[in-house]
Nucleic acid binder design. Sequence first.
DNA 1: GGATAGGCGGAAAACGAATGAAAGCAGCGA
DNA 2: TCGCTGCTTTCATTCGTTTTCCGCCTATCC
Lengths: 346, 346
Amino acid sequence: MPHPARPTVTLREVAAAAGVSVATASRVLGGSARTVSAENARKVLEAASELRYTADVAARAMRRKSDSIALVADDLTTPSIAQVVAAMERQARTVDAFVTVSAAGGDTRRQLETVRTVCAFRPRALVITSSWAATTAYGARLAEELHAYERRGGRVVIYGDMDAPFDAISVDDRGSARLMGAHLAATGHRRIAILAGTRERTFAAARTTGFLEGLLGGGVDVRDIRVIDCPVSRAGGYAATSRLLEESPGEFDALMAVNDTIAVGALSACRAAGVDVPGRLSVTGFDDIPLAADVTPRLTTVALPFAEIGERSIRLALTVAGRPDRPGVRRTVIGRLMVRQSSKVI
Amino acid sequence: MPHPARPTVTLREVAAAAGVSVATASRVLGGSARTVSAENARKVLEAASELRYTADVAARAMRRKSDSIALVADDLTTPSIAQVVAAMERQARTVDAFVTVSAAGGDTRRQLETVRTVCAFRPRALVITSSWAATTAYGARLAEELHAYERRGGRVVIYGDMDAPFDAISVDDRGSARLMGAHLAATGHRRIAILAGTRERTFAAARTTGFLEGLLGGGVDVRDIRVIDCPVSRAGGYAATSRLLEESPGEFDALMAVNDTIAVGALSACRAAGVDVPGRLSVTGFDDIPLAADVTPRLTTVALPFAEIGERSIRLALTVAGRPDRPGVRRTVIGRLMVRQSSKVI
DNA sequence: GGATAGGCGGAAAACGAATGAAAGCAGCGA
DNA sequence: TCGCTGCTTTCATTCGTTTTCCGCCTATCC
């Protein structure tokens, strides 16, 4: 055969072209500790670039630790996650690592499935967002799976909370939410409705608690606060707010949402119902997604340092594993109050 | 050693636990065509689940085609891409494939680098978004790289345009934009400014052309149209609009942006300058990102079927490759006009 | 000048899974 | 009893790379 249709160009061919052994070629291209003569190194590099050689990671992964980091996120369409992912990408690039992303949207069961799938790639580290309560059967099995992965030499980093000793970077949702509660109380708001999302979302529960603490600490009467569950989505915020405005018009002077997406839905409902924001009702969000500054009125919210979160997650993921049974390292970041036009001083 | 700390659980161990050979275990777990007795199959499956075995994709990829599909996107934080990615995920899941995502944000050079990196994973197919002109040196090398990948048996699907015979799914940007141009002309707009993005973005150029065609076809005088380049971002739209409103106030009755993000920036600039939209100026976007319905006034735009795009991309990626030199299959989708409050009838 | 490091290259053994070839085995007819 | 068929299982090889081990050559020191 004069021109065998090669499936891919291998190290063997590079070595042959350079006139050295595969071992030598591997040492040059793979960044080995062993030294290779300058002359041979040059020839190998030349041949590799000539043949457009790229090492097959699959084969490489068999003998060497991989440099891919797997991110298992709930939902990639969430604006906040997108920002975190982008930051991770940037950070990983600086250390020649590589981030693969997969969505496990939904629940702990899907998370478990996805983790198993990603583990098959034998990544160097696993970053997993956890916004679901780990109390279900699947949650426990998930933790078990992650532990098994760590025992096999992997690194696990949680973004969010989990009742298990993994390294974690988490937002102090409760403390950050307290800031917002205190702010509304301080600016004279006294009758508050909280759009609390759903109970299974741990961040939603923590933020609701923080809101309450801040409000109560600022002198708001607990009987003047109403906590309303709703789906964590724009539509959820819209529906809950519409219902609220219809059933008890004028009863509240502030509406606090556990995230910006819900808050945007709420704003939309207010506009539809002809309720002036912030004239008759202050509305606040949480996250400071890019959209928050673009809605009308611009949304008062709590800004979270997503870029920092992404960067730190990767840094944590790349530190070498310590003792298998050491307690998890936990980094906490706190949000910053962003007062804009959707809330006012009463 | 009673308990050697294994880095990973291998097929050999599963086979040993089940009391069969690795070959048999492989056939059971790998879904081979060859038949295995029910009794042995049961034992293998039992052992595998007991040991929490997951096949190492790296090793598997050496003999068999992988199930992973790599997506190389420009920028994952773009709302439209996020929707496409989510749809791809869903579709891939239905056929037991697996999508890995990586951002190559920026330019063709970074795209080339990223493609080379993900090719090393030997994915089954490569879906690449292409919104950058392929006329640069890197663009040509990118096409070359992709061809090499196809020759090695991979599938390449382009989302967007490319002057190369790959399978592609693309939006008829020009035709869709024509709808918007025609609509504005028909509703009485006569003096138009187009926020055209940058020339290197192929979608921006196509949409601008479509706008022009629609407007001219509707009787707008070409001398009353102004095309303004600007960065493809909210800030870019804001700055360009501010400048425009300052330099030539009242000169235009409509502002057409090549995407929603720019349009949102434009709306913001109008609000800042005290220009009533749509009273004094109609503003339109393109894409129908979720945000479009949440800004005030709600944005008139062209809705693109992102979910369909994502789903079709994956379907295309999973069809078996035909003859290496066959012309690329090209699927085109067209947008739908969404008339909302940011434009009016004059 | 000879012994001894030490640098460097190459052959070959992994790594984990897939697979073609070959072997084992039961049933059947001659 | 033998040979054949059809089905299942095992053996041995393969994939592309890294890494270990061994041997060669040169430089250094006594």
